[in-house]
Design a protein around this nucleic acid. Structure first.
Lengths: 247, 247
DNA sequence: TGATCGGGTTGACGTGGATCAAACGCCGGG
DNA sequence: CCCGGCGTTTGATCCACGTCAACCCGATCA
């Protein structure tokens, strides 16, 4: 490879990494920034990382330095407690941020694991704080992202605390559907990246219960399910199921 | 009342309100600020609000302008969904912040209700953002507070998703105990500010189940319970109960 | 002092989801 | 092409917690 090739390739990589060129910029941290601000953010988001399916992006206990923006791929986060129990606390997709839990104590409090081959942008947190002292829009947007995470968690608490199995699964599928839609994919047809066991862990159910709920939904004509391939046939029906009044 | 009296009283109020004079400054936003910075924060935290037991500090749907630091008292937050179900998402005490959920959409997403007569400091959020662009320590601390809320929520998800009734109640009591301790109160003896129903809602249980768990703990000599007055007799026992291995 | 009321306790019973167990089907390797 | 393994489905049974209902107790008020 000639020097020119190498340079060209390097330039290409840089372009590929830059926020200003990223097709996620409407979804990710750069929302609302002007050209100058975007350029500053580009400098910040220097490192990219590729992960293979099953790789850990970080582990609970590791020291926290960066948050990560997902460029492509799909992740889960989970927490373990000493006695061996664990729970999936979330599934993250393109444009979403990982690692916010680490800010509080400078140590990651959960594991982040790629559910498919993925690529993330590492954002050194101290740099982000520094830059968001200069760019109000960035600061505010970051606060909104953290707050949105809190609101999302409240939704999950609601789900775990008050919904029954089928309602939980319906809520889960509708949420996924909507997030795929926001990314330009079909809201009606998608592949689950996670196993029944992982869905169950997230929803506070056993995998058998998840499986039965899928079968029931299929029997009722709400979905078609082939392994991890889901087609939503009756969105309204799923929504109705979710708000099934209980005493 | 003479003019002098009024002036004196006003000065007194101001002193009382100032962060620099607040005995919660080690617990609340001012952590780690120097004298100059504290004075700036004082200007920010101008408004105080008193609430009686049962009063709403804010309601879901109201537009978000300020976050609130609890000076004294005790709160719960809860969310409702259309079909009438609701869930308590947290109990907040002295020195803790309320309203972080409102940042994401400029609208409060839950209700905050005083469980006893309380007093809060209103912190206009745009001012806080502006000040935290000037004071790095404040900025970082605020980020930590938001992150801690996320970590706490993960803990609740864990509790709701994997623990059984007695484990949940034990976790809840130990958490309260530790928070009272951090505020200089007895970790072993305290009054619950919330009803069995509210505890149940938070823990994803029915009030009867909560009541039965209390009775069982008392039978086993872990607690003494008289209405809302709790004495923890065997902290280790409660902890052990929490990590009871299941298959 | 007795009546009322709301929160709390306790008991009897029902049920949703966990558990245990078996079988299925897809997929990669020999 | 068959084999072995893993994720999934499905069935039978069990049990923790919900539900329903009665009762209790302390606080408030007439």
């Amino acid at each position: 490879m000639s020097t020119n090739d190498a340079t060209a390739r390097l330039a290409f990589e840089v372009v590929k990494t830059a926020c200003s060129n990223c097709n996620l910029r409407e979804l990710c941290l750069p929302i609302g920034l002007d050209a100058t601000e975007l350029r500053k953010l580009d400098e910040l988001v220097s490192t990219r990382r590729r992960l293979k399916r099953g790789d850990h992006l970080y582990r609970a206990g590791q020291s926290f330095e960066s948050i990560y923006a997902i460029r492509s791929g799909f992740f889960k986060t989970d927490v373990l407690i000493e006695d061996g129990r664990d729970q999936v606390t979330g599934f993250q997709m393109t444009g979403e941020l990982l690692g916010l839990d680490g800010i509080s104590s400078e140590v990651h409090t959960c594991n982040a694991i790629a559910l498919e081959d993925s690529e993330v942008c590492a954002i050194p947190f101290l740099h982000l704080e520094s830059l968001s002292r200069q760019i109000h829009t960035l600061q505010h947007h970051f606060h909104q992202v953290m707050s949105r995470e809190i609101v999302r968690d409240h939704g999950v608490m609601m789900l775990l605390g008050t919904m029954r199995a089928e309602e939980r699964l319906a809520a889960f599928l509708l949420n996924l559907s909507q997030r795929f839609k926001a990314r330009g994919y079909s809201p009606a047809e998608f592949n689950l990246r996670m196993s029944r066991d992982e869905i169950g862990s997230y929803l506070g159910l056993k995998l058998e219960t998840v499986s039965r709920a899928f079968s029931r939904f299929q029997d009722e004509g709400l979905l078609s399910v082939h392994q991890r391939k889901i087609r939503i046939l009756n969105t309204a029906g799923l929504k109705k199921l979710m708000s099934h009044q209980r005493v």
